[in-house]
């Protein structure tokens, strides 16, 4: 049962990824991206990471993809991209590089590494959200606070970048939404 589910979700994830890369229209790419992200969330559920599955769907599959679609709509780039390639050698070379990458990672993963002992201190005990929250607010409290600073910087940077250049120009309401 789990095996069948695994292969169905794996097909969803990889098919969605191929759709992102191969579809000529950016809007279709964004929708294929949703399929991949929801498949990843299903993988998280199968691996007992319920909190991350929920966060994945809320943050990635909804917020980030909506942001992508917003920008596509705002810029009007949803026309079909010409499949003719101005640099003819690049695509074959890219595919060869991808194949080399697969072989390289598979080769590296085939070794037996020295690490790999089970954790003694950070065991996954109790409910998933409980153990993640305990680690997040004790061991990883300092990085957690730094991400808050990062978020403020990102929001300010997005607003500054998205407003019209030029002194005293009014900020468009639509471009302010992009940064939110």
């Amino acid at each position: 049962m789990i095996a069948v589910m695994f292969f169905v979700v794996a097909a969803l994830v990889l098919g969605g990824a191929l759709g992102v890369v191969l579809s000529p229209n950016p809007v279709y790419s964004a929708l294929f991206l949703v399929a991949t992200l929801i498949g990843i969330a299903a993988f998280f559920l199968m691996e007992n990471a319920q909190l991350l599955a929920a966060v994945q769907i809320i943050v990635y599959a909804s917020a980030v993809v909506v942001l992508f679609l917003f920008v596509i709509m705002l810029l009007g780039v949803d026309r079909y991209e010409g499949l003719g390639d101005p640099r003819p050698l690049q695509r074959p070379v890219a595919v060869v590089v991808g194949i080399i990458l697969v072989l390289e990672i598979a080769l590296l993963a085939g070794h037996n590494w020295a690490t790999g002992t089970k954790s003694q201190v950070g065991k996954l005990h109790g409910a998933n959200i409980q153990s993640v929250a305990r680690a997040l607010f004790t061991t990883y409290l300092w990085p957690f606070e730094i991400t808050a600073i990062l978020f403020v910087a990102a929001v300010v940077g997005a607003v500054v970048l998205a407003r019209r250049s030029g002194r005293g120009a009014p900020v468009e309401s639509s471009s302010a939404e992009v940064g939110s």
């Binding site: 990471a49 954790s119 065991k123 996954l124 990062l150």
Partner: peptide, 19 residues
Amino acid sequence: LDDVGGQVIVFFTLVVAAA
């Protein structure tokens, strides 16, 4: 590896990816 640290790192990755 039965370690919650991996999931916490994914949490941070999601945050940084959103930014």
